[in-house]
C-alpha cells in the first residue's frame, strides 16, 4: 500500500489502501483530474453563449464574480428561510412575516414567539 497502515491512521486509511486499491484510487484521481481539466480549460459559458451579449471576457468574468456572490447570498437566505436575522434589517420585513418572530427586533422576545410558533405548527401537524 502507498500510505501504509500508519499513513493517515485509523480505519479510513486502511479502507482506502487495502479495500480500494491504490491503482483504483489513481484511476479515480485521474478521472476527476481529466474531468476538471476539461471543465476548467475547454468549457466556457462565455464562448458558447454570453459572447453575444457581453463585450469582453474581462467584463464577463467580473459579472460572473458578482453573480456568484448574488446567487450565493440568495441560496444562503432561501435554504433556511424562516429565521430571525442576526444582521440589521433597516426596518424592512419579508412579505407576510410582519409582526411575527422573524421580524421581531428583540431577540429574547423573538425566541419566545418562535417557540410558540413552533409548538403551534407541531400541534397543527399532529391534528393532521
Amino acid at each position: 500500500p502507498v500510505l501504509g497502515h500508519r499513513g493517515l491512521g485509523g480505519r479510513l486509511a486502511r479502507t482506502f489502501t487495502d479495500i480500494i486499491k491504490p491503482r483504483k484510487m489513481a484511476a479515480v484521481t485521474q478521472l476527476f483530474g481529466r474531468a476538471f481539466e476539461k471543465y476548467f480549460y475547454d468549457f466556457s459559458l462565455y464562448d458558447t453563449y454570453f459572447n453575444k451579449y457581453i463585450k469582453s471576457r474581462g467584463q464577463y468574468v467580473a459579472l460572473r464574480h458578482v453573480a456568484f456572490v448574488m446567487v450565493g447570498v440568495n441560496l444562503l437566505i432561501d435554504v433556511n428561510f424562516p429565521f430571525n436575522p442576526p444582521f440589521p434589517t433597516i426596518g424592512m420585513c419579508p412579505a407576510g412575516w410582519k409582526g411575527t418572530w422573524v421580524c421581531e427586533a428583540d431577540k429574547h422576545k423573538a425566541l419566545e414567539m418562535y417557540k410558540e410558533w413552533k409548538s403551534g405548527k407541531k400541534a397543527v401537524e399532529a391534528h393532521h
Binding site: M70, V73, I77, P85, F87
Partner: peptide, 17 residues
Amino acid sequence: TGMALALPFSLSFFAMV
C-alpha cells in the same frame, strides 16, 4: 455584508436584484 443581506432577506426577488 450584513446590510447587503437585509435586501434579499426582506425584498421580493425582482425588486432585490
